[in-house]
Amino acid sequence: MAVGVSAISTEATHEPAVWGLVGNTPLVPLVSGSVPGEGRLLLKAEWANPSGSVKDRAAREILRAGLRSGALRGRRLLDASSGNTAVGYALLGAAAGIGVTVCVPSNASPERRGLLAAYGAELVETDPLEGSDGAIRRARELAERWPERYWYADQYSHAANPRAHYLTTGPEIWQATSGAVTHLVAGVGTSGTLIGTGRYLKERRRDIYTIAVEPDGPFHGLEGLKHMETAIVPPVYDAALIDATVHVSTEDAEVRVRELAREEGLYAGWSTGAAVSAARRLLASGARGPRGEEPVVVVIGPDGGQRYLSEVGRLLRDPAH
C-alpha cells in the first residue's frame, strides 16, 4: 500500500520512485520490561529509510531545493558529511542523475565508504584528525575553487534540512501518536532533526518537551552527534526550541545498543543508543507530561547497527576487536 501511494505522489512531482520511499518510518514501542518508571517509550526507526538513515529526509529536501532554484543545473551537489548524509545524497542523486561529491573524513566506516562507491558518488577524503570541521573546510575550498562545477549545499546551514523534518518527521509522529506525544528526544549533529520536528510538534501543541542529546565531551564515539559547547554550532541550531539537553557517555550508549539488540531485536547505531539512554533517564526520574499526564516519549533512532558492524567489538568488548 505504501509503495502504491509513493508511486502516485512521485508521478505527480516527476521525482524518482525511490525518493518517494523516504520517510513514513515505523514508530516501535519498546517493551515494558526495558522501560523504567511510568510511561511509553516509542522509537522512530529511521534506519527504515532507503539509504538506511534519517539523513535521507534532509538529503531529499536539499536536493529538491537545489533543483527548484536551478543551483544544480550543470553542477554537482557538494557537501561535507560524517557519512550518513553523504550516503543519502549518493543514493538519491544516483536515482535522479545528479552528480554527488562528498567530503568525508578518511576514518569513515568501511560500510559507508562501500555504500558511497556502490552508488557512484565521488568521495573526497579529509584528514581524520581534523574531524567533521576539516571536511567542512575542504568542501568550502572546493566550492570556491570550482564554482561552475559544484553547488555547495551545506547541510549545517541549509533551511531545507530542518524543513524536511518539519514537513515529514513531525507530522508522522503527531499522527502515529494521535497527538499524545509529550516528549521528543533526539541527538544533535546538524540539529536539523530536533529543530524541524520540534518546531512542527510545538506548533501542534505548544507545551511538548523537546530534549537534545549530546555526547558528554568533545572526544566521543557517538558518530553523527556533536558536543555543542566545544564545536562549531550549526546555523540551523535554534536554542529557543530546545527545552533541555542531556549529555550521554559513549559507554552508556553502548550499553543501550547492546540491550536493544538482545532484548528488543533492534540492532541500532550508537546515536540511537545515546538517545534511548537519555529517554530512559528521563522516565526513571519520574518525568511526567506537561500537564502531569503519563509521558509518551518519542525517541529518534538515526541509523541501524549494520552500518557499524566493523566496530561490533565495541559491543562485545572482545579483545580481538
Binding site: S81, L129, G131, S132, I136, H220, E223, L225
Partner: peptide, 10 residues
C-alpha cells in the same frame, strides 16, 4: 602514533 576519534556532525 595517531589518536583517531569518531566523527561528529551529520
Amino acid at each position: 602514533i595517531a589518536i583517531v576519534p569518531s566523527m561528529a556532525g551529520g
